[in-house]
């Protein structure tokens, strides 16, 4: 389980300090797919980066299972990132000098755990995400959708506990977006992984079990799907966003 408790984060630009997160608390249960929505500047990406420990929080706690991430030293944190977390970024963050398959294998290579079954798993992920035909191509030679599916496959290679995704469908067409969401659903259903996705896209968010809406650095509202069908849940999301605009 991921537990975020009273998280604060501010940035300093020149002499001014901007408080971006003002005490955010939330939880993500094992096997849950959670989206974070909110207008620009509400703190979504900052929240994601703090949970990933890409940027240090000012105060508050982030618990992954029983582990307080902020208390880990550099080496242990790198190990958590490598073994227990998977990342999907809006601009894919693929390395141009490596093929699709090598990019997928990269987290395993960094962790020093490339074995025959890891390679088999990479091939299997290629099949699942329909990128087997391009697995020996380089990122410059494939489409945006293929790049993002490669990034999702990379996030899953080490069978992580928690997948963190920052606007994973932001640069994709609807077909590719659907494939990415399907991949997350599969990771949740098959691996029991937690998925924490930051998005602007109400369509993508409507596939989630829960949607947390941030506004001005605080949790403004949390919507649970509770077995509702997807279109109805999307309508609720849109209503909530409209309400936020009215306030």
């Amino acid at each position: 389980m991921l537990t975020v408790q009273d998280l604060h984060k501010s940035y300093r630009v020149g002499k001014r300090t901007y408080e971006v997160l003002k005490g955010v608390s939330l939880t993500v249960e094992q096997g849950q797919f959670v989206a974070v929505m909110g207008p620009s500047g509400s703190g979504k990406t900052t929240l994601l980066n703090c949970i990933s420990c890409y940027i240090p929080a000012d105060s508050g706690s982030i618990l992954l299972g029983d582990t307080e991430l902020a208390r880990l030293d550099e080496g242990a944190l790198a190990q958590v990132r490598n073994r227990q977390l998977g990342f999907v970024f809006q601009d894919f963050l693929l390395l141009d000098g490596l093929t699709v398959r090598e990019n997928i294998l990269l987290p395993a290579i960094l962790g020093g755990q490339v074995q025959t079954q890891t390679e088999a798993r990479a091939d299997q992920l290629c099949d699942v995400f329909e990128i087997a035909a391009i697995r020996d191509k380089y990122p410059a030679e494939i489409s945006g959708g293929e790049k993002q599916r490669t990034a999702v496959a990379r996030a899953l290679i080490n069978q992580p506990l928690l997948i963190l995704a920052d606007e994973p469908t932001g640069n994709l067409d609807s077909r590719s977006s659907r494939a990415v969401i399907a991949a997350f659903e599969q990771a949740r259903d098959v691996l029991g992984a937690m998925i924490f996705m930051v998005t602007h896209d109400s369509f993508a968010a409507s596939f989630c079990d829960r949607v947390v809406i941030l506004r001005d650095g605080i949790v403004w509202r949390t919507l649970e799907k509770d077995g509702q069908d997807r279109p109805a849940f999307q309508d609720r999301l849109l209503d909530a966003i409209r309400d936020m605009g009215k306030e």
Partner: peptide
């Protein structure tokens, strides 16, 4: 760019 990706994917700074 590549240094950041390595770090993001769990490479240690020592590595």
């Amino acid at each position: 760019w590549e240094t950041g990706i390595f770090l993001a994917l769990g490479a240690s700074r020592r590595q």
